[in-house]
Design a protein around this nucleic acid. Structure first.
Length: 297
DNA sequence: ATCCTATCCTGTAGGC
DNA sequence: TGCCTACAGGATAGGA
């Protein structure tokens, strides 16, 4: 018996949308009086120039595409933010002592003149933070390749089939491709395919229209339900109030290897695709027929 | 062009 | 008890 490896929460679309909504309730109109950065850098981002780029600017309404946050500021720039694996935006009103001065891994501290504060914490430093002029955002290398956001443009069976045409990668891996759809990560990919009763090993380009017809609404439903519950927390993800998400109770297969399928009672299985864990019920997610094409990753 | 792997990073769990 | 190692996963660069 091999024990299941420890899983880490990673912010996907619902978690990032939760953060966006909470920030939208508190930061628009607030002006950054001072900004301080840690001596560390994030994986892809030096932080040194951030204070000069941020100080004096006021937040507008934050936006989001997929897992990217666009924290728009006045003066025609945006603070482009990706939470990576462990990034958190943490907010405190004036006088609230919820932000511990000794909290580790805080890389950016924004102080508004009135005592309110907004901190960025990122334990593993896989996140991204950079100031980008708005007129160059669409050409930013991280942004320009993003596919449609499923909550903005709900995918249809036809759009998914067209997007996957010719692709030999496994449908699970396909759902994780941010160039095809922006926002699905490892947790919700498994959940979506389970609920759609589609074998995660099937080649994306070989899915039938009937299968895509089951997948498309589950993308919208799963992501929407997760947003309504403020996302899923295993360990690191938190809202701006440092609270965990509540979608974990709704998970049907993710992180349940060896446990009974909630639908049929068969054993939930775990395997690795493209270096990422996939969870599924081989009984509920049988292939569409014998001899159907499977992909390896 | 498409696909695949290694890389980064840290906390935690498991083994001994 | 405590040390050591393996492992989780976002995006991305570079190789096949």
């Amino acid at each position: 018996m091999t024990a299941a490896p420890t899983l880490r929460a990673m912010p996907e679309l619902p978690e990032v949308e939760t953060v966006r909504r909470m920030l939208a309730a508190h930061v628009p109109g607030r002006r950054i009086a001072s900004a301080a950065v840690s001596r560390h850098r994030l994986r892809t981002t030096p932080l040194g120039t951030l204070p000069k780029q941020l100080e004096g600017r006021a937040f507008a309404e934050p936006r989001r595409t997929g897992k990217f946050l666009f924290l728009d500021l006045d003066g025609g720039v945006t603070l482009l933010s990706h939470l990576g694996m462990s990034g958190r935006w943490l907010f405190a009103h004036a006088g609230e002592a919820t932000l511990d001065p000794d909290m580790p891994h805080v890389h950016l501290k924004l102080d508004f003149g009135d005592g309110a504060r907004l901190w960025y914490q990122d334990i593993r430093r896989f996140g991204m933070l950079r100031v980008v002029p708005l007129d160059r955002l669409a050409n930013d290398p991280s942004v320009k390749l993003l596919g449609p956001d499923p909550l903005v443009e709900p995918p249809t069976a036809e759009s998914l089939r067209a997007s996957a045409k010719g692709s030999r990668v496994a449908v699970k891996t396909f759902l994780l491709d941010q160039r095809k759809l922006a926002g699905i990560g490892n947790i919700y990919a498994s959940e979506i395919l389970f609920r759609a009763a589609v074998d995660p090993r099937r080649a994306a380009g070989a899915l039938t229209l009937a299968e895509w017809t089951r997948v498309a609404p589950e993308i919208t439903t799963v992501l929407g339900d997760a947003v309504a519950r403020m996302g899923t927390t295993f360990s690191t993800y938190r809202t701006i109030w440092n609270e965990p998400g509540q979608y974990g109770d709704q998970l049907l297969v993710y992180d349940r290897p060896g446990e009974p399928c909630r639908r049929c009672g068969a054993e939930v299985k775990r395997f690795v695709q493209g270096g990422r864990a996939t969870f599924w019920c081989p009984s509920c997610q049988r292939g569409a027929g014998k001899g159907r094409k499977r992909a390896q990753s």
